[in-house]
Simulated scan of single mutants.
Amino acid sequence: ALHYTWSPEWRQAIAIGFLGSFTTYSTYEYESLRLLQEGAWVKAGLNLFGSLVLGLIAVILGVALGRLLIGGTEP
């Protein structure tokens, strides 16, 4: 039988990072669904599209800052 032991770092990365992202995403979707069910269409739209756009802006700014800090220009 094959036996593979994950290092503590990999276990944490999977448990916290990967699985944590699913709970964050599902909460985001659940809250959007609840707003839609309550008829709060504008709030649901702001939640869905606002989170998407603000998240993308945060990534763009984070990449730009990272490039400034390391002095690189590669993607």
Rank of each mutant, 00 (worst) to 15 (best):
Y4M: 09
W6L: 13
W6Y: 03
W6S: 10
S7L: 09
P8I: 09
W10A: 11
A13H: 14
I14Q: 06
I14T: 04
I14E: 03
A15R: 04
G17A: 10
F18E: 04
F18A: 09
G20V: 00
G20P: 02
S21I: 05
T24G: 14
Y25S: 12
Y28A: 14
E29G: 02
Y30A: 09
R34M: 02
L36C: 11
Q37E: 10
E38G: 08
G39W: 05
W41F: 11
V42F: 05
L46H: 09
N47I: 06
N47C: 12
N47V: 13
L48K: 13
F49E: 05
F49N: 08
F49L: 12
G50Y: 00
G50C: 06
L52F: 01
V53T: 07
L54A: 07
V59F: 12
I60W: 00
I60K: 04
G62E: 00
G62C: 03
V63T: 01
L68T: 03
L69V: 02
L69I: 03
I70D: 00
I70T: 12
G71L: 11
G71Q: 03
G71F: 02
G72W: 14
T73F: 02
E74D: 03
P75Q: 06
P75I: 02
P75H: 13
P75T: 05
